[in-house]
Amino acid sequence: MDEVTVWDGLTAGLEPIIQLRSLNIGYGKSLAKDITAEIYTGDRIAIIGPSGVGKTTLLRTIAGLIAPLSGEINNNCSGRGDIGYIPQKLGLVRHSSAKSNVMLGARTRKSRFHLPFLGLGEGLNKEVDQLLQKLGISEISDEPVRILSGGQQRRVAIARALIQKPKLIVADEFLGELDADNIDSIIDILETQLSEINATLVMVEHQENIARSIATRIWRIVDNQIIEERVE
């Protein structure tokens, strides 16, 4: 286990998909300062640290939802559908069916000029059905998300992100409140699918053991700084 301020993959000849340069993040007041780091294709990064240190803020900054107070982000995944986002409360459309939610992710695979009322095509529809099957939620695909269990809702949120075939999936404590069996099963599915589409994962996780079971790199926010640890 190596512990360094931030692992430098550039020297290893890797191409970063996101570069954070001297970032100062927060909402008006700075939560974490001078963050310089790279995210590479295929990385599994878990951001950990106590409450209130800016984990979610960093994640939202990476997802492009908030601008940093200062510093620079070189983002190679700013195109349509490049980022799949799974917020803490999952961000599902509660009154739509599980399948409609996943179709929302599939829509990003079409051009932004694709008319909303046109269907997404048989191929993409089939792909959605197959993914729902893989995630074990095909039977509830017509149910409104609102009535699904926590585990089922998480699978829908994961399916919505995966169907995009994004370069990067950003997930915020999305395994919270699940039992151990459900967590293991979701992690297994996620890892298989991430490898299949060669996507990168950056997640916030407050349970360190869960973070270690997925991550290859751990960013621990301590005293407004990121301390990186590589998990072998």
Binding site: G64, L65, I83, I86, G91, G105, T108, R160
Partner: peptide, 10 residues
């Protein structure tokens, strides 16, 4: 959150 997720998705 659904709005934010859809914004992040593009």
């Amino acid at each position: 959150e659904p709005l934010e997720a859809s914004m992040a998705m593009g």
